[in-house]
């Protein structure tokens, strides 16, 4: 018996030694700090308030999408439709504003709700019809991309100018004079806190981790796995809807052709943040750090005069590195 215990202790020591997930999160954070230091030294234009603001604002859309898809990836799934679902929600609400003159607050709610409904649909395909997530969400991506063009008549849908306030205005500057944090960034942080509570403190979050850790054992514990999977996809869809509000508010319009490619950047942010693509592990803070690494890199490289083509190459390399680290530590953990 005492032998058993000592084995458990030994194993504990070993995992503490290179404690997996925390390590990668710490690594991501350190990377972010190093990047910021590097770019600050490399260019005097990096660490100035205008540029910081632009980095923060640039992170909003990708960050919101990444928050939502973090939940899906923790189940061991994937969602390729998040970018176009975001666009579709924005287009639908924009058309309602433009053609029927619905009030803006209602259009915001509708935008978020449309994202949720599509999430429910995607979740049903994956959970009930058992279509592999990759294919199901690829299908939904094409459907929503097509529908966005249909609904909008293939041309941008314009919002009234006050709609811009939602993302680029600053509620905080009215409360704290001089603190010009844009609403979009505030919304991102509030959503991150909400997501963190959902993942760590609620049943949904717990089942989410359990499904990703061992779907069959979770099912055999009497958990309605299909139902919760749908709920998780719905949640992800709601985040797409919020992202839809932010992006259309920033641009003052809903662009039906936009959206594709966003999903991969969001997934990249999640992976850089240490969430495992094989499921069962992941954190919200990691995802936020991952999203910032992406935008700091893009911004910093641009300021240093690196061409856009090369920015993409660098980000690609970072994603591969992040996944490699994940796989490498997993392999060591198994031994």
């Amino acid at each position: 018996m005492s032998e058993n215990q000592s084995i458990a202790h030994d194993k504990k020591k070993r995992t503490l030694f290179f404690s997996g997930q925390a390590l990668q999160k710490a690594l991501a954070f350190v990377t972010l700090v190093i990047l910021v230091l590097f770019f600050s030294l490399a260019s005097p234009n990096f660490l100035i308030s205008d540029n910081i603001n632009s980095i923060l604002l640039a992170t909003c859309v990708n960050g919101l999408l990444a928050l939502g898809v973090t939940f899906v990836i923790i189940t061991g799934g994937i969602d390729l439709s998040i970018g176009t679902v975001m666009t579709f929600s924005a287009v639908v609400s924009g058309v309602l504003v433009e053609s029927f003159g619905i009030p803006l607050w209602l259009s915001v709610l509708i935008c978020v709700a449309v994202g949720g409904v599509i999430g429910t649909f995607t979740g049903s395909l994956v959970a009930y019809l058992r279509i592999p997530a990759f294919i199901a969400t690829l299908g939904v991506m094409m459907i929503t991309r097509g529908l966005s063009l249909v609904v909008s008549g293939a041309s941008p849908v314009y919002f009234p100018t006050e709609y811009k306030e939602i993302a680029v205005g600053s509620v905080l500057s009215k409360l704290i004079p001089g603190f010009n944090l844009q609403n979009g960034v505030l919304i991102l942080f509030l959503c991150a806190i909400l997501a963190s509570i959902i993942l760590n403190k609620t049943i949904l979050g717990r089942y989410n981790l359990a499904i990703g850790s061992n779907t069959e054992a979770t099912r055999l514990s009497g958990v309605n796995v299909a139902g919760w999977l749908i709920a998780i996809h719905t949640l992800s869809g709601l985040f797409c809807g919020v992202a839809g509000v932010i992006i259309s508010s920033r641009l003052g319009s809903a662009q039906p052709a936009l959206g594709q490619g966003y999903e991969l950047e969001a997934i990249a942010a999640v992976v850089i943040g240490g969430t495992s693509l094989s499921g069962g592990q992941g954190t919200i803070s990691g995802t936020i750090i991952g999203a910032f690494i992406m935008s700091v890199l893009t911004n910093g490289l641009r300021i240093m005069g690196v061409k856009q083509e090369w920015q993409t190459v660098v980000i690609g390399l970072v994603v591969i590195l992040a996944v490699f680290i994940d796989i490498y530590r997993r392999r060591r953990q198994k031994i």
Partner: peptide, 29 residues
């Protein structure tokens, strides 16, 4: 390992996995 436990989760998580409903209110555990 395959059908009984979520190996990467804690003793606590596994113990309450089948009865989370009892330990939560409005979805909060």
């Amino acid at each position: 390992k395959q059908f009984g436990l979520a190996l990467g989760m804690s003793v606590e998580d596994n113990t309450v996995l089948a009865s989370l409903g009892r330990f939560s209110r409005l979805g909060l555990i």
